[in-house]
């Protein structure tokens, strides 16, 4: 809405406006900004040198490595899944489509602890496949594959959920036109569909990444939390904290907080690009409308 077109609406009075904005800003400062600030303040409390020292501990470095490794597998897999799922539910209508949509979002509603327990009952010694895995000498639980699987579960919906609403809104016309012009499915995906949703796709991947790196509940059930072997960053933070190595715990926490902040910066940039594109398109269409 352009400023000139803006009409006076309910709550536009200066007093209401001032009170509401101030109230929201104050609560946000307490509820969102303070927790972020306290992480860095506690980590840097004893100087930058102490901070760096507590970061380069071998077990923390190992946890960073394992976390990166997990993200390196989970993000591409869930980007692939997200694109396939979005293609299937937005470009076609079929019976059970609503159910499939609900199924895609299901991991969001399930507690990470429940997810971890569920995985234990598949791959653990007591689980469905347990005896078989033991006979074949394959170790999934309390090892890296279990961490990867649990992370895949928890973050499965992220990319799909970002791009599905957008692809739904954009409809099928462009793809149908491309088919008529003789393009193959892969080519349509690469040159028509994905460019249309690229910003949402990038943000979905960034959120998925932040969540994989930060997953705690599910991973703490399936990893066994063996120091220097199967502890990811969030688990390492908890281990350090339990050991009363508070400064080291906060130092490790700054790494994950940094990833989170970076994710939000990506979002901010993408939104700016998006609105720049929209304004450009808006200006274009405004030119076509004859002025009365």
């Amino acid at each position: 809405m352009s400023p000139t077109a803006r009409r006076r609406r309910v709550g536009d009075g200066p007093r209401t406006r001032f009170v509401l904005i101030t109230l929201v800003l104050v609560v946000t400062a307490f509820a969102v900004i303070a927790p972020l600030a306290v992480i860095f303040s506690e980590a840097m409390g004893r100087g930058v040198l102490a901070y760096a020292e507590s970061l380069v501990r071998p077990d923390t470095l190992h946890a960073i490595g394992l976390t990166l490794f997990t993200a390196l597998i989970c993000v591409p897999v869930n980007v692939g899944f997200g694109i396939a799922a979005a293609w299937c539910v937005t470009k076609f209508s079929f019976p059970g489509r609503g159910l499939l949509l609900a199924l895609i979002e299901l991991p969001f509603s399930i507690s990470p602890i429940v997810a971890g327990v569920a995985y234990l009952f598949v791959y653990g010694a007591q689980g469905l496949l347990g005896p078989w895995l033991e006979a074949a000498d394959i170790k999934i639980m309390f090892a890296i594959p279990g961490i990867v699987l649990a992370s895949l579960f928890v973050t499965a919906p992220f990319v799909a959920r970002e791009i599905i609403p957008l692809m739904m809104a954009q409809g099928r016309d462009e793809e149908e036109a491309a088919v008529t012009l003789g393009a193959s499915g892969w080519r349509i995906l690469r040159t028509v569909t994905l460019p249309n949703v690229r910003f949402a796709l990038i943000y979905g991947a960034a959120l998925c990444n932040a969540r994989v790196m930060g997953e705690f509940g599910a991973v703490s059930v399936v990893s066994g939390n063996i120091r220097g072997q199967t502890s990811t960053m969030p688990l390492q933070i908890e281990l350090l904290y339990q050991d009363s190595q508070v400064a080291a715990a906060f130092a490790a926490a700054t790494v994950l907080a940094g990833v989170a902040l970076l994710t939000l910066v990506v979002k901010l940039i993408i939104e700016r690009l998006d609105s720049a594109r929209e304004t450009a398109q808006g200006a274009e269409s405004a030119l076509n409308v004859p002025t009365p």
Partner: peptide, 29 residues
């Protein structure tokens, strides 16, 4: 279901297999 756009079977197959293995199997267990 009819659409001129290709890839229905492939995308549905990937989606169902992945959801089955990653989401439904543990829940069933």
């Amino acid at each position: 279901m009819f659409s001129v756009i290709p890839g229905f079977r492939l995308s549905l197959g990937i989606t169902l297999t992945y959801l089955g293995l990653i989401v439904l199997l543990p829940i069933a267990a």
